[in-house]
Amino acid sequence: MPEIQSSLLERARALAVPGRRHVLGITGPPGAGKSTLAGQLTDALGPLAALVPMDGFHLAGAELRRLGRAHRKGAPDTFDPHGYAALLTRLRTPEPGVTVYAPAFDRSLEEAIAGSVPVPPGIPLVVTEGNYLLHDDGPWARIRPLLDEVWYLEPDPAVRVRRLIDRHVRHGRDRAGAERWVRGSDELNAELVARRKNRADLVVPID
């Protein structure tokens, strides 16, 4: 992804009001650049922002195998939306003197790691990113009302697919296996995510 757009940074900065807590969501299909933009924003805002990824609520590999869902990891029912909603609720209403610890997702292990992301109570902006922030099926419907704004990233589809394949290869899949996974599981999820684009506050085209 190119350098962060100044208009996006200023829009995020307007949410980082000291003494208040806002939550900004960044969503889009797999490979859209969500984690990149979220990281750019929080790096630029420094002590005003913290990054909390939705991917920390992936179900563990052992649980996915028990449920028979490991072959489509990344689909909505391979996450814990109830836990994610509970965390966002805590983050929206920070307790004085209480640091909230959020999970993160380690791509080298393909597992979520609890207690990885500290969010002190004085940080005014939490940025969260993930595929299903606008999803409104079942427990996922609880997520959108907990977010002050949601931005939907819309990259060129061919670039996005190529980026996804390369990412899977970097994390251990052979290229043929990466292409099969992307054309199957990832693209099914991308179609599902795209159906909820109209619920976003801002659609961001990505060159």
Score class of each variant (00 low, 15 high):
Leu87Phe: 09
Ala86Ile: 00
Ala104Cys: 02
Ile26Gly: 05
Leu88Gln: 07
Ser116His: 12
Arg20Glu: 15
Ile165Trp: 08
Arg160Asn: 01
Pro118Gln: 09
Arg173Lys: 14
Asn198Lys: 12
Pro94Asp: 10
Pro2Thr: 08
Phe57Asp: 01
Val161Leu: 13
Leu88Phe: 09
Asn131Lys: 02
Ser116Val: 00
His82Lys: 06
Pro155Ala: 14
Ala102Ser: 08
Asp136Trp: 00
Ala44Ser: 14
Ala85Gly: 13
Gly46Leu: 02
Tyr84Ala: 06
Ile113Trp: 00
Asp166Glu: 15
Val126Leu: 02
Arg21Lys: 14
Val52Arg: 03
Asn131Tyr: 14
Glu187Arg: 11
Leu202Cys: 12
Ala194Thr: 13
Thr42Met: 01
Asn198His: 15
Gly122Pro: 00
Leu164Pro: 03
Arg90Ala: 13
Leu192Pro: 00
Ala178Thr: 11
Leu8Phe: 02
Gly130Ala: 08
Val203Lys: 12
Gln5Ala: 15
Val169Ala: 06
Thr99Leu: 12
Ala141Met: 00
Pro157Phe: 05
Arg21His: 12
Leu91Met: 08
Glu110Gln: 15
Phe57Gln: 03
Gly68Pro: 06
Gly97Asn: 10
Asp148Leu: 09
Ser116Met: 14
Ala14Thr: 02
Pro2Gly: 15
Pro139Trp: 01
Arg11Glu: 12
Ala200Arg: 12
Val204Gly: 11
Asp137Arg: 13
Val119Pro: 04
Asp106Trp: 12
Gly46Gln: 01
Pro47Met: 05
Ile4Pro: 01
Arg65Thr: 14
Ala112Tyr: 10
Glu10Val: 00
Ile165Cys: 07
Ala70Gln: 13
Leu41Ala: 05
Gly177Ile: 04
Gly74Met: 08
Val126Tyr: 05
Ala16Gln: 10
Glu110Asn: 15
Arg163Gly: 11
Leu133Pro: 07
Asn198Phe: 13
Ser6Ala: 15
Ile165Leu: 06
Val161Arg: 15
Leu24Asn: 09
Thr99Arg: 11
Pro2Asn: 10
Leu15Gln: 11
Ser185Met: 12
